[in-house]
Amino acid sequence: MSEGVKEENQLYDEINITPMLDLAYVLLVIFIIMTTASVQGVKVDTPQTINSASLAKPQIRAITITSDGSVYLDAYPVDMASLEQRLSEYKNGNPELPVVLKGDAAAHYEKVSEVLEICKKLDITEVGLVTKKIAQ
């Protein structure tokens, strides 16, 4: 009987960390899911117009220009050379490639002009400009 009492009062040599690791893995998975769910594109403040039409064509490529002049193709940052190269590849796959240009209202017009020149050079004729409709 004295041996049973001795075993109950014995200090633990190790701490079981398995439940803590399980919790850490669950938190890591939740963090990854929440982070990827929040990344949907590049946020810009588009200019406002009275009428705005939406394009609903398949395989539309979106070019975004931020207020600091960064250029994105389908939410991936690109420079002008890689933009031209990738648009050329898309144009070879689809001769009637539609492109949507989404520029921030504070973006430099020079960047917008450069992107439009690339589209003209590649003979991309279906270019739409994204704007917000003014609430009246």
Results as ranks from 00 to 15, higher is better:
Ile134Gly: 03
Lys91Gly: 01
Glu84Phe: 01
Ala81Glu: 15
Val99His: 06
Glu117Asn: 12
Ser70Ile: 00
Val78Tyr: 05
Ser82Phe: 07
Leu28Cys: 07
Thr131Met: 10
Lys6Gly: 01
Ser52Pro: 00
Ile15Gly: 02
Ala106Pro: 00
Ser2Val: 11
Ser2Trp: 05
Ala56Arg: 14
Leu97Ile: 01
Lys120Pro: 01
Ala107Tyr: 04
Val71Thr: 12
Ala107Asn: 04
Lys111Ile: 15
Val99Gly: 02
Arg86Gln: 07
Glu110Val: 14
Gly128His: 12
Gln40His: 02
Pro98Gly: 03
Asp13Tyr: 10
Ser52Arg: 09
Ser2Tyr: 11
Glu114Gln: 11
Pro19Gln: 08
Ser113Lys: 14
Leu122Ala: 00
Glu89Arg: 11
Asp22Ala: 05
Pro95Phe: 00
Ile134Asp: 09
Thr49Asp: 09
Ala62Val: 10
Lys132Ile: 04
Pro77Asn: 13
Ala105Cys: 02
Asn94Gly: 06
Gln10Pro: 00
Val130Ile: 08
Leu27Asp: 03
Pro58Arg: 04
Pro95Gln: 07
Ala24Leu: 14
Tyr76Arg: 13
Pro19Tyr: 02
Thr18Arg: 07
Tyr76Pro: 00
Phe31Trp: 08
Thr64Asn: 07
Val100Gln: 13
Asp45Asn: 08
Asp79Phe: 04
Ile32Ser: 11
Asp22Met: 10
